[in-house]
């Protein structure tokens, strides 16, 4: 049985790069989820739906401005804000009234949000497959390690670390970021010194969803945009934040890298079961370290 094809060094390297760029997308999405987890201590089940809305919004915005370079950049900048607006509405109208309740209710609320947003997307955009084009200079591929590598993926490889550094600077160097981290540790204390905790939570939630939208906009040129993409990403995001350590941003990075690279190597070694490899990696890691690789903020 020779179902493992001969693997050359260049194939290894190019799959590593593909895995890395996939990991960057995953990181952008999961860093947002991790941020919400860290501050609100709620796994946002609707995170995948917001990611999907980000991708669909990118499609619409890009079309509105006639595609091309302008359309792409405007879509990339504007669609996260569209998603942030959606999440702000949901948060201020309903979610914020639940902060005093037990966490399970918060989680179930985000599940309800996922169900509603999923159907809203179906109503607004329909069930067709959509795609958008990256601008001219991101199309095609460059040769790295004797193997073609899409230019757009190079862009992703730059964007991931940028988001990581930005988020780190934000939560460690700005006042609001510090307040958010403090509220995660001791909500009552933060409230006692005169800070409106509800708005801090709102801010954290919206920022997390903003990142989901950014992830959706970033992934849009590489995949076919369709309903159902929320279900796939959310379970991956759950796994990643779990193995990384709940609420730890660098944990999200580590988890994304593990997930992206095992998936990509899985495609190389055993294409049919590529989907199983990352799950297996997750199982092994959780047996080894039940609460994730890095320290959870909980």
């Amino acid at each position: 049985m020779d179902f493992v094809q001969t693997i050359t060094l260049s194939a290894l390297c190019s799959h590593l790069l593909v895995g890395l760029s996939r990991a960057m997308i995953l990181f952008v999405v999961t860093s947002g989820m991790s941020f919400v987890l860290g501050v609100l201590r709620v796994p946002n089940v609707a995170h995948g739906s917001l990611y999907m809305i980000g991708a669909f919004a990118a499609f619409s915005i890009s079309n509105l401005f006639g595609g091309g370079s302008t359309g792409f950049w405007l879509a990339l900048i504007l669609s996260p804000f569209v998603v942030a607006l959606v999440s702000l509405i949901a948060e201020r109208s309903l979610f914020c009234h639940l902060y005093e309740r037990e966490h399970l209710m918060l989680l179930l609320f985000t599940f309800a949000l996922m169900l509603i947003l999923g159907d809203l997307v179906k109503m607004v955009w329909g069930a067709d497959y959509r795609s958008i084009m990256a601008p001219e200079y991101f199309r095609g591929s460059v040769t790295l390690f004797d193997a073609p590598f899409p230019r757009y993926n190079l862009f992703l490889l730059v964007m991931g670390p940028l988001v990581a550094v930005g988020l780190w600077l934000f939560s460690n160097k700005t006042k609001i970021g510090k307040i958010a981290r403090a509220a995660a540790v001791d909500r009552e204390m933060v409230g006692a010194i005169g800070i409106n905790v509800s708005w801090v939570f709102a801010f954290a939630f919206v920022l997390g969803c903003f990142l989901a939208g950014l992830g959706g906009a970033l992934v849009a040129p590489t995949v076919s945009i369709t309903i159902g993409m929320d279900h796939d990403i959310i379970i991956e995001a759950f796994l990643i934040v779990t193995i990384g350590g709940l609420g730890n941003m660098w944990g999200a990075m580590v988890g994304s890298l593990i997930f992206g690279i095992t998936q990509s190597f899985g495609i190389l070694f055993l294409p049919q079961f590529a989907i199983v490899f990352p799950y297996l990696a997750v199982v092994i890691i959780l047996i080894w370290r039940p609460t994730g690789i890095l320290k959870s903020v909980w």
Binding site: R41, I235, L239, T242
Partner: peptide
């Protein structure tokens, strides 16, 4: 595996392991 953990970690680990079964059946 799950009972070693509490609350949300329990739930998320179970989703992970259950999804592994799903992935196998699916593929």
């Amino acid at each position: 595996f799950c009972v070693r953990l509490t609350r949300l970690y329990f739930g998320m680990l179970q989703i992970s392991l259950g999804s592994l079964i799903w992935a196998i059946a699916f593929r």
